[in-house]
C-alpha cells in the first residue's frame, strides 16, 4: 500500500481500528455465543423427572420434538404466523415507506416519529389496551351489541388473528424504516426516466423500483421475520394459554417444566428454522432478480 492511499478505516494502520471492535465483540461473545454454546450442550443431555438434568450425549430431545404432532404443530403455526406477518408488513409498509422516502416537507420527521410510535409502548401495555378494546366485554363488542348489530360478542382476543394483528403492529415500524432508507437512496430521476420511456406506474414499480429496493426489502423482511418467529409477549398476551408459539414454548420448558434439555433442543430448532428459512428466501429472491 502506498503511503498516500487513504485508509479504509481511520486508524487502520495503528491498530486502533482493531481496538474499536473489541468491546462489542467481547459483549457478543460473553452475552450471546457463550450461552448458546452451553444451551446446545444442554440440549444433548437427558431429562429424568425428579433428577432435573443428567449429563449425556443423546439426540432424544430432538427426536421427541419431531415425532410429536403437538410440537410440530407449534412449529408450523409459528412459521405460518411469521410468514403472514412478514408479508402483511411488506404489503402495508412499502407504500408508506415510499411516501415517506419521497416526502420533502418539514413534516417528514414528525411522520417518521409517528411510525416509530408503536415501539414506545411496551408489549404488555399494548396488549392490555387491546383487551380493553377488543375483549368480549370490551369497547368494540359493547358498542356493536349496544347498537344491536350483533347478538354475540365477536371473538377477537385469544385467536390467531389477534396475534397476527399484534405482531404486525409491532413489526411494521421496522419494515417501514428499513425500506424508507433504501428507497431514499434510489434517485427520483431514475423513476422519471422510466416514466418518460413509456412505463406506467405499475411497470415502473415492477421493473425499476422493486428491483432497486430489493436490498431493503430483504433486510426488512429478514428483520420482521426473525422478530415474528421469536415473538414472546404478543402470543402469550393476545393468543391466550391455548395458542402456542415457539417462543413461549421454550420459556415453558425452562421455567415451568424445568426440562432444560428439551428447552435447549426447542431453542435450537427455532433458531435453525429461522436461519434456514431466511437464507432460503434470500437465495430464491437473489436468483430471481440478479
Amino acid at each position: 500500500m502506498s503511503a498516500t492511499a487513504p485508509e479504509a478505516v481511520a486508524g487502520a494502520r495503528t491498530g486502533l481500528a482493531g481496538a474499536l471492535v473489541v468491546p462489542a465483540t467481547i459483549f457478543v461473545a460473553i452475552g450471546l455465543l457463550g450461552p448458546i454454546a452451553i444451551l446446545f450442550r444442554y440440549s444433548l443431555n437427558q431429562f429424568i423427572p425428579g433428577q432435573f438434568m443428567v449429563d449425556g450425549l443423546t439426540i432424544e430431545n430432538y427426536v421427541k420434538f419431531f415425532t410429536d404432532g403437538y410440537y410440530l404443530n407449534v412449529l408450523v403455526r409459528t412459521v405460518r404466523v411469521a410468514v403472514i406477518c412478514t408479508i402483511a408488513c411488506l404489503i402495508m409498509g412499502f407504500p408508506l415507506a415510499y411516501v415517506l422516502a419521497r416526502m420533502t416537507s418539514p413534516r417528514k420527521n414528525l411522520l417518521i416519529m409517528l411510525v416509530v410510535l408503536p415501539l414506545f409502548v411496551g408489549n404488555a401495555v399494548r396488549a392490555a389496551g387491546w383487551m380493553a378494546a377488543f375483549g368480549s366485554k370490551g369497547a368494540l363488542n359493547a358498542s356493536l351489541i349496544g347498537l344491536g348489530l350483533i347478538d354475540q360478542p365477536l371473538e377477537i382476543m385469544f385467536t390467531e388473528n389477534a396475534v397476527l394483528i399484534g405482531i404486525v403492529a409491532v413489526n411494521l415500524p421496522f419494515m417501514v424504516l428499513t425500506l424508507q432508507s433504501v428507497i431514499e437512496g434510489i434517485p427520483r430521476h431514475v423513476e422519471e426516466a422510466a416514466f418518460s420511456l413509456g412505463a406506467g406506474p405499475m411497470a415502473m414499480f415492477r421493473r425499476v423500483l422493486w428491483p432497486l429496493a430489493l436490498p431493503g426489502i430483504l433486510a426488512g423482511t429478514i428483520l420482521t421475520f426473525i422478530l415474528a418467529m421469536n415473538a414472546y409477549a404478543t402470543p402469550v398476551l393476545l393468543g391466550g394459554p391455548k395458542f402456542q408459539m415457539m417462543g413461549p414454548l421454550v420459556y415453558g420448558q425452562f421455567a415451568q417444566q424445568n426440562n432444560w434439555p428439551f428447552g435447549g433442543a426447542i431453542s435450537f430448532i427455532l433458531m435453525t428454522a429461522t436461519i434456514v428459512l431466511t437464507v432460503a428466501a434470500h437465495l430464491i429472491v437473489q436468483r430471481r432478480y440478479r
Binding site: P187, V190, A194, F195, S196, G198, G200, R207, V208, L212
Partner: peptide, 20 residues
C-alpha cells in the same frame, strides 16, 4: 397526459440509467 404517454425522450443531468 401523464409522462408515459407523451413520447418525449429525456436525458437527465445525472443520466438516471437503471443501475440493475
Amino acid at each position: 397526459l401523464p409522462p408515459w404517454k407523451r413520447n418525449c425522450g429525456l436525458v437527465f443531468q445525472s443520466y438516471a440509467l437503471f443501475p440493475h
